[in-house]
């Protein structure tokens, strides 16, 4: 396997506040990687750094072996980094289908955009909502749209930021199945999630972030059994952590 995204000593500070602290992380192509950590640990900031919405204060970010630290977000998307936002940013004045179409045309292959959108609508279960205004969607559907829009850019690595919260048990199972399908198609997935049991049903490797730093990583079961991680997650149901 080859490394698709690599972070070397990446730090991000806002004034005196360090939100990302010297993170070294390599993501293999086709890998399913989970990221957990307490609120405010800097998980979403990590996505902003990988996606290019933020510039690191220190360190470099690589796509395969190209340095992309200075590349704007739009060009990183075209390389193959697709991301969702924790707080959904739908294009509210467009339909769901148009949201995907825009992503497919500008972030993916414009020629095959309608087919790509059709496939993504099926995959994410948004097809019945295709012609609805995105502004009329509820929060859960907006989160679904975040994932769908990122998928429409035909990424090689998909960054998912907390999309399982608030789902019923059945919906959560369906989401896990969808993400497994996406992963099975060969796409690398990096998933930040508080719903740990959903995460563990998909990921092959787990990374724990606390106060901006990478504090544990490895086999998901082993990481969750780590006393320090349990300490961090004290208060989370033992069944969830299992």
């Amino acid at each position: 396997m080859t490394q698709i995204v690599t972070l070397k000593g990446v730090s991000k500070s806002f004034g005196a506040l360090t939100v990302t602290d010297a993170v070294d992380l390599a993501v293999e192509s086709g890998e399913a990687l989970g990221i957990i950590g307490p609120n405010g640990a800097g998980k979403s900031t990590l996505f902003n750094l990988i996606g290019g919405a933020l510039q690191p204060s220190e360190g470099r970010i690589y796509w395969q072996d190209h340095d992309i630290t200075d590349l704007p977000a739009a060009q990183r998307c075209r390389l193959g980094i697709g991301r969702s936002f924790q707080i959904p940013h739908p294009f509210v004045g467009m339909t769901v289908y148009e949201n995907l179409l825009t992503a497919a045309i500008f972030g993916g292959d414009a020629q095959s955009a309608p087919q790509t959108c059709r496939r993504v609508l099926e995959l994410t279960g948004l097809r019945p909502k295709a012609n609805l205004q995105a502004g009329s969607l509820g929060l859960l559907e907006r989160k679904r749209l975040e994932m769908a829009r990122a998928l429409a850019t035909s990424p090689k690595v998909l960054l998912l930021d907390e999309i399982a919260g608030g789902l019923t048990e059945a919906e959560c199972h369906a989401l896990v199945a969808t993400i497994r399908d996406i992963h099975a198609s060969g796409m690398a997935v990096i998933w930040i999630e508080h719903v740990v049991h959903a995460l563990l049903a998909v990921v092959e490797r787990l990374v724990v972030i606390d106060r901006g730093a990478l504090v544990a990583q490895g086999d998901p079961k082993a990481v969750m059994a780590d006393p320090m991680v349990q300490q961090l997650y004290l208060g989370i149901d033992a069944d969830d952590a299992a």
């Binding site: 919405a53 998307c77 739908p90 004045g93 467009m94 825009t102 992503a103 972030g107």
Partner: peptide, 16 residues
């Protein structure tokens, strides 16, 4: 329209 509705999301899907 995408830029009108969300600049960060527009960038993230490849719009310069």
């Amino acid at each position: 329209t995408a830029i009108r509705d969300s600049e960060p999301a527009s960038e993230s899907i490849g719009i310069r």
